[in-house]
Computed example of a mutant assay.
Amino acid sequence: MSASALAAMTQEMSRTGNPSSLHGAGRRAHRVVEESRERLAAAAGAHPSEVIFTSGGTESDNLAVKGLYWARSAQDPARRRILCSTVEHHAVLDTVEWLAAHEGAEVTWIDVDSTGRMRLDELEAEIARDPSSIALVTLMWANNEVGTVQPVAEAVALAAPHGIPVHSDAVQAFTAVPVDFRASGLATLAVSAHKIGGPVGIGALLVRRDIVLTAVQHGGGHERALRSGTLNTAAAAAFAAAAGEGASRIAAEAERLAGLRDALIEGVLAAVPDAVLSGPADVGQTGERLPGNAHFTFPGCEGDSLLFVLDMLGVQSSTGSACTAGVPRPSHVLLAMGYSEEAARGAQRFTIGHTTTAADVEALVAALPEAHARAKQAGMAAKQSRIQTAGTGLSV
């Protein structure tokens, strides 16, 4: 957490008051929440009434995708199609798949190119094919694994003439790259506090004032009756503090992070020459990639093994892959970008943020050769074990 967010949260946690109550403590808490809403709206280019507080990005995505689908299909039962990119976060992917399995939605997956960017020609063709049947389009602002910034403005421009709402998961993008909800033309946009130096457990869905959503969570009618539940005053204050701070320094911080990222990429490729950078190279910092994201695949090396060895050496990274029921699976993002399953299993994501220094990058580059050698050796041993097991007819 940033210092300003921690200070705001600590101060509010020392006080009492339900922001929905009418007594003095409640009115004071309500004022804090509304001031936080205003500050968050200013940072995101929205009107305060468009900010709906949630528990985080996952809830925001669920409310947006389900809420738009249910509202649109209720207005016109023919609107059952959802156009969705193949590289969305699972908060969107799984919600879309749930709607298809339980609510009669028809999903059209829009492919991406080799850098992970949505193919606008496919989106345009699918919209043109039958615009009246489309409930919504969903396209993340920037990919959480490979860092690719998506063509959100272009997607909205294709959908808008037909009155089709577009949702964007901007959890990774908010305060990392310029995000202006008002200028975007989006119907809804999801953000989360813990990605920007705020606390875990609070996020927001920005909902354009003319957009109708069907509520997912019911109760006391909080948050324009779209998200019932007692608001977390302390977390809202901390979220707003982090957002205000992040938005005020976005250009300078993006330049600093991109410089560290480029040094990291250069160092990794020098330390392990066969490493392959995933996503756009963003040469000259053109904004094609998140400034704090560097993603690689390491041929012949299991990503999980590399993660654990790096962790033992003091570097915390991520494979970027989903784990279901404890079974590692290749990243759906990399598979959508055309990687083989074997190549995708060698993924490793390094992300840097407001606390990262050049010394941190140097520590990673120094640790990587040993970590890579040990992880590659472990991968070779595991592969040999699988071959020997296959020869016996046994399964493990």
Results as ranks from 00 to 15, higher is better:
Leu277Tyr: 09
Met337Phe: 04
Ala74Leu: 08
Ala170Tyr: 01
Arg256Trp: 14
Trp98Pro: 00
Ala271Arg: 04
Ile52Cys: 07
Val212Lys: 08
Trp141Pro: 04
Ser73Met: 05
Val361Leu: 01
Gln285Tyr: 12
Ala46Ile: 11
Ser60Ile: 06
Ala101Glu: 12
Ala363Gln: 09
Val216Ile: 11
Leu394Glu: 15
Val146Cys: 13
Asp274Met: 06
Asp180Arg: 06
Ala64Lys: 02
Val146Glu: 14
Ala44Met: 06
Ala190Gly: 07
Pro369Asp: 12
Gly326Val: 09
Gly353Tyr: 07
Met380Pro: 03
Ser132Ile: 14
Leu22Gln: 15
Arg37Thr: 14
Pro131Asn: 00
Lys383Met: 12
Gly24Asn: 13
Asp121Glu: 11
Pro178Ser: 03
Glu154Gln: 13
Glu88Gln: 10
Thr286Pro: 05
Ser85His: 01
Ala183Ile: 06
Ala251Lys: 07
Ser14Pro: 01
Ala29Trp: 03
Cys323Arg: 14
Pro273Ser: 08
Gly24His: 13
Ser340Thr: 15
Thr86Tyr: 00
Glu302Phe: 11
Glu38Cys: 10
Lys195Trp: 10
Gln316Tyr: 08
Gln377Asn: 08
Val107Glu: 10
Arg329Glu: 14
Asp76Tyr: 08
Gln348Val: 06
Trp141Ser: 14
Leu260Tyr: 09
Pro151Asn: 05
Phe308Val: 11
Gly45Gln: 05
Ala3His: 14
Leu136Val: 11
Asn143Lys: 04
Arg80Tyr: 05
Ile250Trp: 00
Gly314Lys: 00
Phe174Trp: 07
Ser55His: 09
Ile387Phe: 10
Pro299Ser: 05
Lys66Ala: 05
Gly292Ala: 11
Ser21Gln: 15
Met9Ile: 15
Thr286Asp: 15
Gly201Gln: 05
Ala294Ile: 02
Gly56Ala: 03
Ser132Thr: 15
Ile52Pro: 01
Ala382Ser: 10
Ala225Val: 14
Val33Pro: 04
Val315Met: 10
Ala271Ile: 08
